[in-house]
Nucleic acid binder design. Structure first.
Lengths: 359, 359
DNA sequence: TTTAGCACTTCAAAACCGCGAGTGCTAAAC
DNA sequence: GTTTAGCACTCGCGGTTTTGAAGTGCTAAA
């Protein structure tokens, strides 16, 4: 990797950066003449043309057609993000707003993520997403049952620090003491194991212990399994979908439709993201440019996200999605600060630590 | 109202209906010659032209420009929906699918609505929406507190048949017995009243009763209020946003953007819908055409929805949103059947009753 | 190695044009 | 009085042509 940095002469780097900056700014192909005005470049347009031709040969630039300027290729953006980009500094005001908004609603992870993702959309003006990754081996830490009425119980489960509730309807009246009894049994037999690990002998054992209330075991266990399977399914939430339309690259109806379909189907993207958020141990902002994304629809889009940690454990991720031509500097910085902020609100000490380099 | 029906001669009605049917079908302005082929119309194109001119004068039709055919005006659609439309009959297959899908997931209102709205989008091929209306005077029926760990309680509330949970963090250790004690106090003092009705004297009284645990009262009450205010905020969920793009009337980027923004902001629409769902006592499918909608963005769109009742109480609504030119027949029938189906699954006896006329 | 000059390419927007659909009107027919 | 045929007129749509600007690659000189 590091040697690739040396592949380019200093002047080529300046030119490449200037081209990408300009293209990000206005979205149009940039020509040699335009760069003449750039302060760090002091050669003529002809020289720049030669350099550009070489940069194209190397795969960092491409031409929509002869006689248009150059636009960055995916490799170009990749090089830019990896080596050329400089750090974006938030103004104090922006930082304040960010902190303030996040601290507003001091409560569940869910609502914090919701605020954060809304903020991400607003600050970057791209479509933002919040990811709750799949958790294939999730277990219940604790059960509690309440008797709601004659025929209905409320089943309360503490799963991965989150509380989930579910009704359980019975076809026979439920005596008052049955609820407490059943919670005790559940807590004894089915804590710390996954849904798949609940075996028939276990259920029979529970029914034996429950004595005359054995008829409640089966519906409750069914409810437990259902809840777990819904919970570990992961979740993907979008905010600011309409912001896509602000960018000419999404003016193509077909692409737009595909994109919206992607947003609605969620499964594909969730799959990918669950993998990524789980595996990447490092705490960097992840940047996937164009075809680096596994989902075909996102060929011309960039996905940027970073995991949110709560006391070292990955509990989700926040990111944005937009055209490959995007303001990487600002977006990367925003996502970085935002995830830090969320961790902070969650009380994670590792939050404010700051290293800055990103991949 | 009824006399307006007489305003139009039988022939005019046939012609108007034919025009609207044709326009719904193919989206293009329909001319006099085209109607000659219609089976119920047996006069020449010239006569039809005269009739059309009169219908235009009355405000039921309009011309995009001279020398184009006519398209229905909003008043035209309104008349069509009120008087001209005939009933759409589902095939047995369609009915079966509907029932079957709805019965799949026999559980919470939330997930039933989710299934229903997905089904609505699929069946109609328009964007579907599920509404949980605002409930300004919501009260908690029952409280329960669990001690999660040293410093945290889980607050469980039964609100309007739904269970909500929330963490309460304390700054002092919480003894085991405090939870039970506090639930008893909550159940005694703050059931059946709205958040606004919790007064300072009441809180002081509770603190007195709680004795040494009085430091828990304030954070818990705060949590209660927060939860209530979030809960009665109402909810609006969309499904199938990408289906908008299938219709040429949304090919205009600006309109599309506005529409998506509407979907994200939700507040406006929720406001309107909460009002409507609450006030309309009757069990009809509601149809709002074009500028009949209070929200300006929806000028060229139609909103169709119907309340979902659970044992007589309105618990939500399901609807669709689409271009003014839409297949009213099918959509109205679909929404009607769908809400009936949901009520049925919820166990509401009034569900399957069937009258059919709609406004 | 850099630069000025020039011929060439390509696309985008504007201008143009003909076609066809559909109308309104008038006058004749029923 | 109502219906119909006929006709002149209008207007937008789609395709083609024209024009112009932008930018390149190459060559030859500095």
């Amino acid at each position: 990797m590091e040697d690739r940095k040396k592949d380019l002469s200093e002047r080529k780097k300046i030119i490449l950066k200037a081209i990408i900056d300009a293209h990000i700014e206005n979205g149009e192909p940039v020509g040699s003449k335009y760069l003449t005005g750039h302060k760090q470049i002091s050669c003529s347009s002809a020289t720049i043309r030669n350099e550009m031709a070489e940069l194209e040969e190397m795969g960092f630039l491409e031409q929509p057609h002869t006689s248009a300027g150059r636009i960055p290729s995916e490799a170009g953006y990749r090089f830019y993000v990896d080596w050329l980009i400089d750090r974006y500094n938030f103004t104090q005001g922006e930082m304040d707003e960010l902190r303030h908004t996040l601290n507003q609603k001091q409560s569940e992870l869910d609502s914090i993520m919701q605020t954060a993702v809304a903020l991400a959309a607003k600050l970057t003006n791209y479509t933002a997403l919040a990811i709750k990754p799949r958790q294939p081996r999730i277990t219940v830490a604790r059960y509690e049952l309440l008797r709601l009425n004659e025929m209905t119980l409320i089943l309360i489960m503490v799963i991965g620090g989150i509380v989930k509730t579910k009704y359980v309807h019975s076809n026979r009246p439920i005596p008052n003491e049955a609820a407490a009894c059943l919670s005790a049994v559940l807590n004894k037999y089915v804590t710390g194991i996954t849904a798949a690990e609940i075996t028939l002998p276990m259920m029979m054992e529970m029914e034996r212990v429950m004595g005359e209330y054995e008829y409640l075991v089966s519906p409750v266990i069914k409810a437990v399994c259902e809840t777990i399977s819904v919970f570990d399914g992961g979740e993907l939430r979008f905010e600011g979908i309409n912001r896509l339309l602000a960018y000419p690259e999404f003016y193509d109806m077909d692409r737009l439709r595909d994109m919206l379909a992607l947003f609605e189907k969620k499964d594909d993207l969730l799959e990918v993201l669950s993998e990524e958020t789980k595996h990447t141990a490092d705490d960097r902002v992840q940047v996937y440019i164009g075809r680096e994304n596994i989902v075909k629809v996102m060929d011309n889009s960039t996905l940027i996200f970073k995991a949110v940690r709560d006391h070292g454990k990955t509990v989700g991720a926040i990111g944005i999605i937009g055209p490959t031509r995007m303001d990487y500097r600002r977006v990367i910085a925003t996502i970085d600060q935002l995830t830090r902020g969320v961790s902070e609100v969650l009380g994670d000490p590792s939050g404010p630590a700051d290293d800055g380099k990103n991949s």
